[in-house]
């Protein structure tokens, strides 16, 4: 068994179990913690795929920034209405319907469309593509327009948030 396979099984198990635990916990804060563990597992999986930049960004952006805000909201709002939803039969049917569609989609992707066939067997090229130098070069040459557009979108969203949060301007 190669080291890569061992790491894949380890991180895969962590992310699978933590995602199941995340949706089955009733305490929203515990769910959020399992989501963070899931992100950590995913970041390990990205490392086994030679995608170092994505692995670290996963931790910095999702686990380090976005989930902190989630925790803030959960701590301050104290949501205790999860039991309310489980008593609504209409919602339950709707949830089962959505889950069934997603399940069919996953089955189709794994068993019919064979995603691994299109993989590039050239390991050296895939190692190079995952490095920060290569991603930076691509972002600032081929994809500079979408990159700048995304930057302006985020700036607009920040200004919007400030305007919404501020009660009155002098």
């Amino acid at each position: 068994m190669s080291l890569q396979l061992i790491l894949f099984i380890l991180f895969g198990t962590i992310s699978a179990i933590s995602s199941v635990l995340m949706i089955t916990r009733t305490n929203a804060l515990i769910s959020a913690l399992f989501l963070i563990l899931n992100f950590a597992g995913l970041s390990g999986l990205y490392l086994t795929l030679n995608a170092q930049f994505i692995a670290v960004t996963q931790v910095i952006v999702y686990a380090g920034a976005i989930m902190v805000l989630f925790l803030f909201v959960i701590m301050l709002l104290k949501p205790e209405h999860e039991k309310y939803f489980s008593h609504q039969p209409k919602l339950k049917i709707f949830a089962f319907f959505i889950a069934f569609i997603v399940f069919i989609q996953l089955v189709f992707m794994i068993f019919v469309s064979h995603p691994s066939q299109g993989n590039n067997a050239n390991v050296a090229a895939s190692v190079k593509a995952g490095t920060i130098e290569e991603i930076g070069k691509q972002l600032y040459t081929n994809y500079v327009l979408p990159f700048e557009a995304a930057g302006y979108l985020l700036l607009a969203a920040t200004i919007g948030a400030i305007v919404l949060a501020k009660k009155k301007f002098e």
């Binding site: 804060l29 913690l33 963070i36 170092q52 930049f53 670290v56 960004t57 931790v59 910095i60 686990a63 380090g64 920034a65 902190v68 925790l71 803030f72 701590m75 490095t131 920060i132």
Partner: peptide, 24 residues
């Protein structure tokens, strides 16, 4: 490692959880 500085940033961003969770 070649992502050393990002590794430091990733871990320090996780340090927030210790204090937040301790408080909560």
């Amino acid at each position: 490692v070649n992502i050393g500085i990002l590794y430091v940033l990733a871990l320090t961003s996780l340090g927030v959880y210790a204090i937040t969770l301790a408080g909560w």
